[in-house]
Protein backbone atom coordinates (compact mmCIF):
# COMPACT_ATOMS: atom_id res chain seq x y z
CA UNK A 1 0.00 0.00 0.00
CA UNK A 2 2.82 2.36 0.90
CA UNK A 3 4.57 1.61 -2.41
CA UNK A 4 1.39 2.49 -4.28
CA UNK A 5 1.16 5.73 -2.31
CA UNK A 6 4.78 6.56 -3.15
CA UNK A 7 4.28 5.94 -6.85
CA UNK A 8 1.14 8.07 -6.82
CA UNK A 9 2.98 10.79 -4.94
CA UNK A 10 5.70 10.77 -7.56
CA UNK A 11 3.43 10.87 -10.59
CA UNK A 12 0.81 13.34 -9.37
CA UNK A 13 3.10 16.40 -9.12
CA UNK A 14 3.95 16.02 -12.80
CA UNK A 15 0.30 16.43 -13.65
CA UNK A 16 0.12 19.53 -11.45
CA UNK A 17 3.10 21.23 -13.08
CA UNK A 18 1.82 20.33 -16.55
CA UNK A 19 -1.54 21.91 -15.72
CA UNK A 20 0.08 25.10 -14.49
CA UNK A 21 2.24 25.24 -17.64
CA UNK A 22 -0.88 26.17 -19.59
CA UNK A 23 -2.26 28.65 -17.06
CA UNK A 24 -1.97 32.39 -17.63
CA UNK A 25 0.93 33.89 -15.70
CA UNK A 26 -0.17 36.09 -12.82
CA UNK A 27 2.71 38.50 -13.31
CA UNK A 28 1.86 42.14 -14.00
CA UNK A 29 4.42 43.38 -16.54
CA UNK A 30 4.98 46.67 -14.75
CA UNK A 31 5.93 49.46 -17.14
CA UNK A 32 3.32 48.36 -19.68
CA UNK A 33 0.61 47.14 -17.34
CA UNK A 34 -0.06 48.98 -14.14
CA UNK A 35 -1.73 47.80 -11.01
CA UNK A 36 -4.59 49.94 -9.68
CA UNK A 37 -3.60 50.79 -6.12
CA UNK A 38 -6.12 50.47 -3.31
CA UNK A 39 -7.93 53.72 -2.31
CA UNK A 40 -5.96 53.92 0.93
CA UNK A 41 -2.64 53.03 -0.71
CA UNK A 42 0.28 54.63 1.12
CA UNK A 43 2.22 56.48 -1.56
CA UNK A 44 3.64 59.99 -2.01
CA UNK A 45 2.72 62.50 0.71
CA UNK A 46 0.89 65.77 -0.01
CA UNK A 47 -0.18 68.85 1.91
CA UNK A 48 -3.85 69.70 1.43
CA UNK A 49 -5.91 72.86 1.72
CA UNK A 50 -9.14 73.32 3.64
CA UNK A 51 -12.49 74.05 1.92
CA UNK A 52 -11.80 77.79 2.13
CA UNK A 53 -8.64 77.36 0.10
CA UNK A 54 -6.25 78.08 2.96
CA UNK A 55 -3.39 75.82 3.93
CA UNK A 56 -4.44 73.24 6.46
CA UNK A 57 -0.97 72.82 7.90
CA UNK A 58 -0.45 74.73 11.14
CA UNK A 59 3.23 73.75 11.45
CA UNK A 60 2.74 71.97 14.77
CA UNK A 61 5.72 69.61 14.15
CA UNK A 62 3.65 66.55 15.17
CA UNK A 63 4.28 64.83 11.86
CA UNK A 64 7.99 65.38 12.06
CA UNK A 65 7.94 64.12 15.64
CA UNK A 66 6.00 61.03 14.66
CA UNK A 67 8.21 60.25 11.69
CA UNK A 68 10.37 57.23 12.57
CA UNK A 69 13.01 58.10 9.98
CA UNK A 70 13.03 61.88 10.48
CA UNK A 71 12.31 62.73 6.88
CA UNK A 72 9.98 65.68 7.56
CA UNK A 73 11.33 69.10 8.52
CA UNK A 74 9.72 72.54 8.59
CA UNK A 75 9.86 76.02 10.07
CA UNK A 76 6.74 77.44 11.74
CA UNK A 77 5.66 81.08 11.44
CA UNK A 78 2.49 83.00 12.13
CA UNK A 79 0.42 85.26 9.95
CA UNK A 80 -0.74 88.68 11.21
CA UNK A 81 -4.23 87.34 11.92
CA UNK A 82 -2.73 84.69 14.19
CA UNK A 83 -2.97 81.78 11.73
CA UNK A 84 0.08 79.51 11.91
CA UNK A 85 1.72 78.09 8.80
CA UNK A 86 5.01 76.57 7.73
CA UNK A 87 7.55 78.98 6.29
CA UNK A 88 9.15 76.06 4.57
CA UNK A 89 8.19 72.41 4.62
CA UNK A 90 10.45 69.66 3.32
CA UNK A 91 9.99 65.90 2.94
CA UNK A 92 12.97 63.81 1.96
CA UNK A 93 11.40 60.92 0.06
CA UNK A 94 14.68 59.09 -0.17
CA UNK A 95 14.31 58.47 3.57
CA UNK A 96 10.52 58.13 3.77
CA UNK A 97 9.34 54.60 4.47
CA UNK A 98 5.68 55.38 3.67
CA UNK A 99 4.49 54.17 7.08
CA UNK A 100 1.72 56.79 7.31
CA UNK A 101 2.43 57.71 10.94
CA UNK A 102 2.65 61.41 9.99
CA UNK A 103 -0.87 61.36 8.57
CA UNK A 104 -2.13 59.71 11.73
CA UNK A 105 -0.41 62.32 13.88
CA UNK A 106 -1.65 65.33 11.91
CA UNK A 107 -4.41 67.14 13.90
CA UNK A 108 -5.55 69.23 10.95
CA UNK A 109 -5.55 66.43 8.34
CA UNK A 110 -3.14 68.53 6.31
CA UNK A 111 -0.58 65.87 5.45
CA UNK A 112 -2.13 62.99 3.52
CA UNK A 113 -0.99 60.02 1.46
CA UNK A 114 -1.76 59.51 -2.20
CA UNK A 115 -1.71 56.44 -4.42
CA UNK A 116 1.23 57.72 -6.44
CA UNK A 117 4.15 55.31 -6.05
CA UNK A 118 6.32 56.23 -9.03
CA UNK A 119 8.88 58.41 -7.33
CA UNK A 120 12.01 56.91 -8.83
CA UNK A 121 14.47 59.33 -10.40
CA UNK A 122 18.12 59.46 -11.32
CA UNK A 123 18.70 62.76 -9.50
CA UNK A 124 18.94 62.36 -5.74
CA UNK A 125 17.88 65.92 -4.96
CA UNK A 126 14.72 65.47 -7.01
CA UNK A 127 13.28 63.22 -4.33
CA UNK A 128 13.53 65.99 -1.73
CA UNK A 129 10.15 67.68 -2.04
CA UNK A 130 9.73 71.31 -1.01
CA UNK A 131 6.51 72.92 0.14
CA UNK A 132 5.43 74.17 -3.31
CA UNK A 133 5.77 70.61 -4.65
CA UNK A 134 3.87 69.12 -1.71
CA UNK A 135 1.02 71.59 -1.47
CA UNK A 136 -2.00 70.83 -3.67
CA UNK A 137 -5.00 72.96 -4.49
CA UNK A 138 -7.70 70.51 -3.36
CA UNK A 139 -8.82 69.10 -0.05
CA UNK A 140 -7.76 65.53 -0.53
CA UNK A 141 -9.59 63.15 1.75
CA UNK A 142 -12.08 64.58 4.30
CA UNK A 143 -13.09 67.40 1.99
CA UNK A 144 -15.39 69.06 4.56
CA UNK A 145 -12.89 69.27 7.38
CA UNK A 146 -11.64 72.69 8.41
CA UNK A 147 -9.61 72.76 11.60
CA UNK A 148 -10.08 76.49 12.35
CA UNK A 149 -13.86 76.17 11.95
CA UNK A 150 -13.93 73.60 14.74
CA UNK A 151 -11.11 74.46 17.07
CA UNK A 152 -9.42 77.69 16.12
CA UNK A 153 -9.46 80.59 18.53
CA UNK A 154 -10.77 83.49 16.54
CA UNK A 155 -8.64 83.06 13.49
CA UNK A 156 -10.94 82.01 10.65
CA UNK A 157 -14.09 83.33 12.33
CA UNK A 158 -14.60 85.61 15.35
CA UNK A 159 -14.83 83.86 18.72
CA UNK A 160 -18.09 82.04 19.25
CA UNK A 161 -19.04 82.04 15.57
CA UNK A 162 -18.04 78.48 14.79
CA UNK A 163 -20.79 75.81 14.80
CA UNK A 164 -21.24 74.21 18.22
CA UNK A 165 -19.23 76.93 19.90
CA UNK A 166 -20.86 79.09 22.55
CA UNK A 167 -20.00 82.82 22.58
CA UNK A 168 -17.34 83.85 25.08
CA UNK A 169 -18.57 84.62 28.54
CA UNK A 170 -18.75 88.27 29.59
CA UNK A 171 -16.67 88.05 32.74
CA UNK A 172 -18.02 91.23 34.17
CA UNK A 173 -21.69 90.23 33.92
CA UNK A 174 -21.05 87.16 36.02
CA UNK A 175 -20.07 89.21 39.02
CA UNK A 176 -22.30 88.60 42.05
Amino acid sequence: MSLWRDIKGTIQPFWVTLRYLFCRPVTICYPEQKQTPAPRYRGRLILTRDPDGEERCVACYLCSAACPVDCISMQATEREDGRRYAAWFRINFSRCIFCGLCTEACPTLAIQMTADYELATRELLQVVYEKDELLIDGCGKNAQYNFYRLAGIGVAAPRGANPGESPPEDIKSNLP
Binding site: Y20, L21, F22, C23, P25, V26, T27, C29
Partner: peptide, 13 residues
Protein backbone atom coordinates in the same frame (compact mmCIF):
# COMPACT_ATOMS: atom_id res chain seq x y z
CA UNK B 1 10.72 30.05 -19.89
CA UNK B 2 9.14 26.67 -19.19
CA UNK B 3 10.06 26.72 -15.51
CA UNK B 4 8.63 30.22 -15.27
CA UNK B 5 5.35 29.17 -16.89
CA UNK B 6 5.10 26.21 -14.54
CA UNK B 7 5.33 28.73 -11.68
CA UNK B 8 2.86 31.08 -13.42
CA UNK B 9 5.50 33.65 -14.25
CA UNK B 10 6.55 35.01 -17.66
CA UNK B 11 10.26 34.25 -17.60
CA UNK B 12 12.71 36.39 -19.57
CA UNK B 13 10.68 38.54 -21.97
Amino acid sequence: KVLARMQMRHGPN
